[in-house]
């Protein structure tokens, strides 16, 4: 069986974001919205820059919101199969449930990478634009601003597999006989999150100017490694739920 190629084909299929059925928003409208948001941001950036604020380092805290999108994406890739009535096709594919849930997971992670990269690019652009308008753009500032962003977005990305795997389990749980356990998983998730990442003072320092800094410490490496191992366990759990506990 050409497992390798079908696996990536599955990932590609799952990568596509599928909304519920209903007329989708036309392309022109979506572009208009994007343009409007960009304009507002540009105006705000110009305004702050004129007001003398140009050090946007703290803005990078936004990166900590990114794992939430990963969670949403992962849940969505699972749940849409049920919402759109395609689950019967998906789950009767001649591939193991581990194969299927792993593909969903990888698709969610890949999608996250794109979103993280996009966020980084947009934030970098506005940060540097602000500095430029206020006339403070120099090599040193640019380098430190971009480095801070890279560190924080990178940290979020490192946490992404754990969160995405949790999303996959959460989606499977929602459609299983174990559905009543859903609130319990939140408690479990928060607990695990705390266990893994509670030592953040060891690698995350906030400077007096509010700019966060990440230092690569052994604690951090161990925490991330642990979260990845747990992610694997969670995907196996999702596969088990799809195998044995489906509510259909």
């Amino acid at each position: 069986m050409p497992a390798q190629s079908t696996f990536w084909a599955l990932v590609r299929h799952d990568f596509k974001h599928r909304r519920r059925r209903r007329t989708p928003i036309p392309r022109a409208w979506r572009l208009a919205y994007v343009a409007a948001v960009a304009l507002v941001l540009l105006a705000v950036a110009t305004y702050t820059a004129r007001g003398g604020h140009y050090r946007l380092g703290p803005v990078w805290w936004v990166a900590f919101g990114l794992p939430f999108t990963s969670f949403g994406i992962a849940v969505n890739t699972m749940v849409t199969e049920w919402k759109n009535g395609t689950v019967g096709w998906w789950l009767t594919l001649p591939y193991s449930r581990l194969h299927l849930s792993a593909a969903k997971f990888v698709a969610a992670v890949v999608r996250s990478v794109f979103i993280y990269a996009l966020t980084y690019a947009v934030m970098a652009f506005f940060g540097l634009y602000t500095a430029l308008v206020s006339g403070h753009l120099d090599l040193g500032y640019t380098a430190s601003y971009l480095r801070t962003g890279l560190q924080l977005v990178g940290l979020s990305l490192a946490a992404c597999p754990f969160v995405a795997a949790f999303g996959v389990v959460y989606g499977a749980l929602a459609e299983s006989r174990a559905r009543p356990a859903m609130p319990l998983t939140w408690i479990l998730f928060s607990g695990l999150w705390w266990l893994i990442f509670s030592q953040d003072y060891r690698y995350l320092q906030v400077h007096s100017d509010g700019v966060p800094h990440v230092s690569l410490s052994p604690t951090l490496c161990i925490s991330i490694a642990c979260s990845w191992v747990l992610a694997y366990g969670l995907i196996r759990l999702a596969a088990y739920l799809l195998d044995e506990q489906l509510a259909m």
């Binding site: 596509k16 599928r18 009535g85 019967g88 096709w89």
Partner: peptide, 20 residues
């Protein structure tokens, strides 16, 4: 199981197709 599904073509009840 998933292995036997290689030999089965199945139209699920109330199924829909990927609308995109």
């Amino acid at each position: 199981g998933w292995r036997t599904n290689r030999d089965i073509a199945y139209l699920p009840d109330r199924a829909r197709w990927y609308s995109d």
